[in-house]
């Protein structure tokens, strides 16, 4: 318990978490602090490239131990299965309509790459080893949840979407963040240590600083979302107790599934912690866009406020240290 509290305190006072808190506080206080859209997108491209590249270099250094394929398969299965758990929990805890519940479920089956990046940074700072291929697992876990949610909707509401499923699938799988993450991972894998030396000054030294600024921006966006939900009810009772409880319970259930899967896969403590983070986090970049195309009748404010305003801060502040402590106990790291 002491270890968890120490880790939580260290995490809480890190520049990354404090930057996020600053952004959230500024937005709630109605400050005019903001990042232009192009700057936010530029920072996300940088972070995706850097984390993908470093993951590839790590695989190149340590070699493939056959775990990649198993981890990818388990990751895809978890991403496809978690929306069903999320959907059931939402229907039990909240009065959300089927369409909204399916849309939220897709967000929670998929992953938040920023939470993953932050968790990797925490592990690196503490010198905890984690499998480099977890980046590839993260990319593989983005899309299956969307397909599960669409299947749920078609089963419960009947086929009503006019959307061409083939075009939608192509768009999901070729989503810019997935392409960049996987592409940078492959570049890192192919070029290895030599490649890293060439661009090290760009992808390593500024990384934490850029992550702090990006989290500041995420805090601003999350704070604005919460303020809007509180003022106008645009989130459709997103701040109702049942919905709030889902925002905290679902990451814990997801993390438990990730812990069991990571243990079964024989991952290191760092790898288990990262798989827990992936299962606990909710997408707010790739899935919202796919849901707007495929399920336009779902209220986007509910998913976004939950994923970014409740679950993201929960994972960032309490979740990451908790998952790391559980992984350490489980694996004995």
């Amino acid at each position: 318990m002491d270890a968890i509290l120490t880790l939580a305190a260290q995490n809480l006072l890190s520049p990354m978490i404090l930057s996020f808190a600053l952004g959230m506080a500024a937005a709630l206080a109605r400050s005019d602090l903001s990042f232009p859209e192009a700057v936010a997108k530029g920072m996300s491209l940088y972070l995706l490239f850097a984390i993908g590249f470093k993951g590839g270099v790590s695989v190149s250094d340590h070699g493939l131990d056959g775990g990649l394929l198993a981890a990818l398969t388990v990751g895809v299965a978890l991403s496809a299965a978690l929306p069903f758990l999320a959907f059931g929990l939402l229907r039990a805890l909240t009065p959300l309509p089927i369409t909204d519940a399916a849309s939220v479920a897709a967000h929670y089956g998929s992953i938040s790459i920023v939470t993953f990046v932050t968790a990797s940074t925490v592990l690196d700072a503490q010198g905890i080893f984690h499998e480099g291929y977890m980046v590839a697992v993260a990319a593989a876990m983005e899309a299956p949840a969307i397909l599960s949610a669409l299947w749920l909707i078609s089963r419960l509401n009947g086929p009503g979407a006019r959307e061409d499923r083939g075009a939608l699938l192509r768009e999901i799988l070729l989503n810019g963040s997935i392409v960049l993450l996987v592409g940078a991972f492959l570049i890192g894998w192919v070029t290895g240590e030599e490649g890293q030396r060439e661009i090290d000054a760009f992808i390593t030294a500024p990384f934490k600083g850029v992550l702090c600024l990006f989290l500041l921006d995420m805090g601003l966006v999350a704070g604005r979302g919460l303020r809007a939900a509180r003022q106008k009810g645009a989130g459709g009772d997103v701040l109702a107790p049942g919905v709030l409880a889902f925002g905290v319970l679902m990451p814990l259930l997801g993390a438990a599934a990730g812990a069991a899967a990571g243990w079964a896969l024989g991952l290191s403590a760092g790898g288990v912690a990262l798989l827990m983070v992936l299962c606990a986090s909710a997408s707010y970049i790739a899935v919202p866009a796919a849901m707007r195309v495929a399920l336009p009748q779902a209220n986007p404010a509910i998913s976004l406020t939950l994923a970014l305003g409740i679950t993201f801060p929960f994972n960032l502040v309490l979740g990451i240290p908790l998952y790391l402590a559980v992984a350490n106990v489980l694996i004995g790291g």
Binding site: S34, F35, P36, A40, L220, V221, A228, A286, A301, L304
Partner: peptide
């Protein structure tokens, strides 16, 4: 379009990364 207001209230593209909501 950088922002506006509609039936769901005010919205802005400031700081947004996802294409959703724009």
């Amino acid at each position: 379009v950088s922002g506006g207001s509609g039936r769901s209230g005010l919205w802005s593209r400031e700081g947004q990364v996802s294409r959703a909501g724009g």
